[in-house]
């Protein structure tokens, strides 16, 4: 099942790469489509075992819906953090307290933890330094508001966690 979904994704990417439709003549390039099948098959045979765990979430439309919802949600927090960091930078005193805090997440799968870590990194002001598989993240924070683990977790992690659980778990 995993391999089939991987095959479909790879084939779609191949079609986007070569674009096998000639607009002037209106013909489909069957040779490219054929070679694409072979190429996607080769990749699946070579790297089929190297898939992230539980990647069959690609087939559930509900998860796609939540992923679409996540985009504006994430953009909102990203914008907010941007303004905050801009305020910190433009402030004459530069009231920053940089430091690394340890936060915990209840997400379990690797993909979800990675998505969470990358969301934190993409948000200005916070940057994931390291992530363990048991859900411990080490986050560099430009302005440490809460040194305690639990409060920092609530501030940084919780806003993304719920959505990511709906998408990936």
């Amino acid at each position: 099942m995993r391999k089939i979904s991987m095959f479909v994704v790879l084939y779609v990417v191949w079609c986007l790469l070569v674009f096998p439709y000639d607009r002037t003549t209106g013909q489909w390039d069957t040779q490219s489509l054929l070679v694409g099948l072979v190429a996607a098959l080769v990749v699946v045979v070579l790297f089929g075992n190297a898939l992230p765990d539980r990647s069959c979430f690609l087939l559930a439309p509900r998860r796609w819906f939540w992923a679409l919802v996540y985009i504006p949600f994430f953009a909102y927090y990203c914008l907010k953090a941007n303004l905050e960091v801009a305020y910190l930078v433009l402030h004459p005193d530069m009231p920053i307290r940089p430091g690394i805090v340890k936060v915990r997440t209840s997400l379990r799968t690797r993909v979800a933890i990675t998505a969470l870590a990358n969301s934190i990194t993409l948000t200005p002001g916070t940057l994931t330094v390291d992530a363990d598989e048991d859900g411990t993240l080490y986050v560099h924070w430009i302005d440490v508001k809460f040194a305690e683990d639990d409060e920092a977790t609530r501030e940084i992690v919780s806003r993304f966690e719920g959505h990511l659980r709906r998408i990936f778990e």
């Binding site: 699946v44 790297f47 190297a50 690797r110 990675t114 870590a117 990358n118 992530a131 598989e133």
Partner: peptide
């Protein structure tokens, strides 16, 4: 974990 997962997604 981040490097591992992303590389798995990207390598194909």
């Amino acid at each position: 974990t981040i490097v591992k997962t992303i590389s798995r997604c990207v390598v194909g």
